[in-house]
Simulated scan of single mutants.
Amino acid sequence: MDVTTKISLTQALSNAISYHQYLNLVKIMAIEGKSTGNDTSEAYVNYTKLNAKRMQRWDKTLRFDDEVINKIKSVYVKVNWLVLTESWCGDASPALPVMNKISELNPNITLKVVIRDEHPELMRHFLTNGAMSIPKLIQLEPETQRVLGTWGPRSTKATHLVDAFKKEHGALTAEFRESLQIWYNKDKGQSILQDLLNLLSLE
């Protein structure tokens, strides 16, 4: 890891908040008609309002089967999960609740959240195909902050859907984004879960 990455990680970790603090922030933003990040347009405010509702719903309905729960509880190596995101990010609304549920099942997995636009230097070290795509999860070794892996901004299955649509249409539309949220709901977080289990080297 180069020096600038390590400095950026250290700064981000010092400013990081818990998932529940982040969820509360999104709720407050929604009530006040605001959004996190540099773009505070009406569209982003509306996305923030949607995400506040979506994350609360995911927290209530998300279920893991016994086999998955046992796998998560069997992780004996401590890791830190640092996630870059924004209140308006549609892909974050199902992903962060899955991450949180995993971390709640095993104290060896610590989840922290930072706002992307407050940490542009860190984001530049973890681009996806050259873009500042979120959510972006960085898995770290707690003592050294060594990067053990990354995930995001979408599950492998969701990424295939997005890539296929872009190949055919050139860019994502509002209609596609809505259909992706419907797909997330039908998937019940399972594709995100499987990717994160792989990140933890469980499978």
Rank of each mutant, 00 (worst) to 15 (best):
T4D: 15
S8M: 01
L9M: 08
Q11M: 11
N15L: 06
A16C: 03
Y19C: 04
N24T: 13
I31A: 15
E32P: 00
G33C: 08
K34G: 08
T36Y: 05
G37A: 12
N38D: 15
S41H: 06
E42A: 14
V45N: 12
T48C: 11
L50N: 07
N51T: 03
M55R: 00
Q56W: 05
K60F: 10
T61W: 00
L62K: 01
E67S: 14
E67T: 09
I69Q: 10
K71Y: 11
S74W: 13
S74T: 05
Y76N: 14
V77D: 15
W81Y: 14
A92G: 08
A92P: 02
S93I: 04
N106W: 04
N108A: 08
I109F: 09
K112A: 04
E118F: 13
E118R: 12
H119Y: 08
E121S: 11
H125C: 14
T128C: 05
M132W: 05
M132P: 15
I138N: 03
P153C: 06
R154D: 06
S155W: 03
T156M: 14
V162R: 05
D163A: 14
D163V: 05
K166P: 08
A171R: 14
A171G: 01
R177I: 10
Q181K: 14
I182M: 01
W183K: 01
N185S: 13
N185I: 06
K186W: 08
D187L: 04
Q190G: 07
Q190V: 15
S191P: 02
S191M: 05
Q194A: 12
L196P: 01
L197H: 09
N198D: 12
S201T: 11
S201W: 00
L202N: 08
